[in-house]
Each structure stands twice: as C-alpha cells, then as structure tokens.
Design a protein around this nucleic acid. Structure first.
Lengths: 108, 108
DNA sequence: ATCTTTTATCGTAATTTGACGATGGAAGAG
DNA sequence: CTCTTCCATCGTCAAATTACGATAAAAGAT
C-alpha cells in the first residue's frame, strides 16, 4: 500500500464518530442503513451521511441499494490490508530507528 | 487504548507529510532537528515545525533540547501500542461483522 | 395515484488545518 | 559582548472539516 493511501485511510479513521460508525456497522452487520446508525448517535442524519461518505470515499465501507434503503457494510478486506500496512509502516520505523531515546541518552 | 486516543493518533498520522517526517526521523535517528527535516522536504521551516507539533501533541515523537538545537525522535513505544490497538480494533470489527458482503449476497 | 420512508445533497456557519513569512528568544561561537 | 544558528510562535490566508436544517428524488406501501 502506498504511503498516501495509508495516510488517506488514517485520515478517514481519524475521527471518533467514524470509528464508532464502523463498530455499529460491524455489530449490525447484515442490515444496517443510515437511519439505523443515526439512531445510535447524537447526530443529525445529514451529518451521519457525510461521515459515511468519507468512509465510502476511503474505500473502507461499501454501499448496497436494497429497496428504499441503502445498506452499508464494512470492507473487511480493505481494513485488513490497512492493518497490515500500518504494522509494516510502524515496523519499518522501529527497525530504522532502533531505540532512538536510548541512543540519545548514550550520547549525552 | 481508548477509542478517542486511537482516533487522535490516526488523525495525527493522517497526513502524507507527517508519515514522511516520521520516516526521516527514523532514518536519521540519533541527531535530527527541525532544519534537517526541512532540508528533506519542499516546505517552509515553520510548516515543518507545525507538523512536528502535531506529532508531539499526539505523543508520537519526543523533543530533546541539545545545545541550540531541538532533537526529535520517534516514540517507538507509543507507535507499537498504536499498531497493536489498530490491529485489535480492526480484528474486533472483523469478528463482529463476519464477511458482511457474503451475508448480503446470501440474503439477496 | 398518493403517501411514507429513506437518504444523498445543497446551503450555511463555525472551527480547524495547512501553508507561508516574519520575528524574537535561547544558546553556542568568535 | 556580539554574531550566528536554530526554531517555536504569531499573524494571516485559503481551503477543508464538521455540524445542522431543508429539500428532492427514489422506491415501496396503501
């Protein structure tokens, strides 16, 4: 995964409400629409819809028209890839840096 | 780690420049000041300083006065905790959701 | 055909972000 | 003491984010 993509997903996830929305989606899994989420949050429907769009644009969730409703669900594959990319990124930093604090202590 | 803290770190990491700054810090490990980073990026010193503040406020990096300079380094511990928290969060979503897309396919 | 439900989108307002140049203060160098 | 280097902070500006209410379109229900 590209660094910019990683940043984009981080940014999309970088809001407590959106983390909570994903949890709600995961819990109600198979049949969750915008109103269902709005019922769980102290926010207006339009605000929730906006947050859903952010997650949608980042490719973290999926939308499926179902009659008069739109069902959303988590894109587990994308999140798994993100989790791996995050681990790799952090891992790279760690191996490159060693324990920087210790080095500074040793030098001073 | 609290969900809000996770969101705060995600947000701090949710910018390509800041991901790049962390990489630079990790590479130059033991002796990296604001100017060093600025030299690696097409940005003004004040802009880099601002990004450093964001990372600092999120607890992702550490500052150490060293003579006339301020050395920064990555807080590997915090990033490791973040990596774990991310994995756990994504893992929770996965187990709660199953493969939601498949469920929807089966229902439709 | 009409009504209701759902929800994306528009318009708006307040706040935050991201970028810059300028500046002042802190600390070593001469 | 003076000079230079480093850099956090201030002021500014444009753009993005976050929230809201209003609204219209789409689709099922009556």
């Amino acid at each position: 995964m590209q660094q910019d993509d990683l940043a984009a997903i981080m940014r999309a996830l970088g809001h407590p409400v959106r983390l909570e929305i994903l949890r709600i989606l995961a819990r109600k899994a198979q049949n969750c629409c915008c109103n269902d989420i709005t019922d769980c949050l102290p926010l207006a429907q339009s605000t929730v819809s906006q947050h859903l769009k952010v997650l949608l644009d980042a490719g973290i969730i999926e939308r499926r028209a179902k009659g008069t409703r739109n069902n959303y669900c988590v894109r587990t594959d994308r999140l798994a890839a993100f989790s791996v990319a995050t681990r790799d990124y952090v891992g790279d930093l760690g191996t490159a840096a060693g324990s920087c604090a210790d080095v500074l202590d040793a030098v001073s």
